[in-house]
Design a protein around this nucleic acid. Structure first.
Lengths: 190, 190
DNA sequence: GTCTATAGGTGGATAGAC
DNA sequence: GTCTATCCACCTATAGAC
């Protein structure tokens, strides 16, 4: 895939704004003034705001999938995989940004059906990945937890999304690192 | 405090809209059409949107404090207190609504300073309450967890906020109940 | 692909009559 | 306290020239 530089530039700026202020608080005008083109030009690349929003979600989902694949390739330890998963969220807050899909989940009811579906798909993918890591880690004796792995996966994904939201609101790296490291500690065997 | 019925009515409707669609996706016009008054009348009661928003947060914080106080009075078991805390969040989703302050935390950067401060105060209060319950529960031998109670309090508050957000997005009571009950299981002694 | 111009709508907020 | 009328800024989106 060749990265059309103009579209990429638009998506980059749009993503940054949405992740810090939300979908309903951003406009084509914000992007236009930031990259120095007219609003009409933006409509040439993304006819409607919903088109742009959907691309944002798809690109973010792909990006995160790639990151998780890299984690899978670079680490065999499931404890470390889990820690890397948490760190991906911590990194988000260093730029004072939420997870794109976490932000959009809050605004879910105001979005187009296609965006809603894509967002839910994002979370399903996360739960699936975490569940797989948990099961493998437990059978390896590296992770310890009681009960259904799927429920734990939901808990882990939810914790990090909630932690990001609260930490961003408090502008507190301390909050996200506390939650992140406490979470890992809770699943470490021994 | 006598409840001025008109202001209460306005706040009730505003809260319902914000908790389902968010602060930036709601307008005086939405409230006006729902209760059958003009926008100008609303401005008489709440001069600016930010005034209205601040009252919403203050009222919600008071309401939740009252609920927690009731939990403290009605239950001596810290395990049950914790479960009741989680249930307060589950109840929210039954009307397909987020926690007011969770929703506003996502939109935090777009809000007035006074609203931002009030929202952060809400979360501080929660962490404080949970931490106290955790410490008492552990010393009673009813709850079990390793490490700092403050970090666990942050984890618990974050989990439920995140679970609400994802569950609402998926319209899945299953998601919030899974997280809620898994969370309680994790802190139960034995 | 980019622009100017503009349409058509809605946002929060105010003036002033009743 | 409530209304109508109105202001002005901003929104998403389109038309049509270059």
């Amino acid at each position: 895939m060749v990265t059309n530089s103009k579209q990429t530039q638009i998506l980059d700026i749009a993503e940054a704004i949405v992740r810090s202020r939300g979908y309903n608080a951003f406009s084509y005008s914000d992007i236009a003034s930031e990259i120095g083109v007219s609003k009409a030009s933006l409509h040439h690349h993304f006819p409607t705001k919903s088109d742009l929003g959907l691309k944002l979600v798809e690109r973010f989902t792909d990006m995160f999938s790639g990151a998780l694949q890299q984690v899978d390739e670079q680490h065999s330890s499931c404890l470390i995989k889990l820690r890397e998963y948490a760190r991906l969220h911590e990194g988000s807050l260093q730029e004072n940004k939420m997870c794109l899909c976490g932000m959009l989940a809050a605004e879910h009811e105001t979005l187009s059906q296609s965006m809603q579906d894509a967002i839910n798909g994002y979370f399903d993918g996360h739960e699936h990945w975490i569940k797989r890591v948990l099961l493998k880690g437990r059978s390896d004796g590296e992770l310890a937890f009681k009960g259904d792995a799927g429920r734990h996966a939901k808990l882990i994904a939810s914790s990090l999304q909630g932690a990001l939201m609260i930490a961003k609101s408090k502008r507190s790296m301390d909050h996200i690192t506390a939650v992140s490291s406490q979470l890992i500690d809770s699943y470490r065997a021994i």
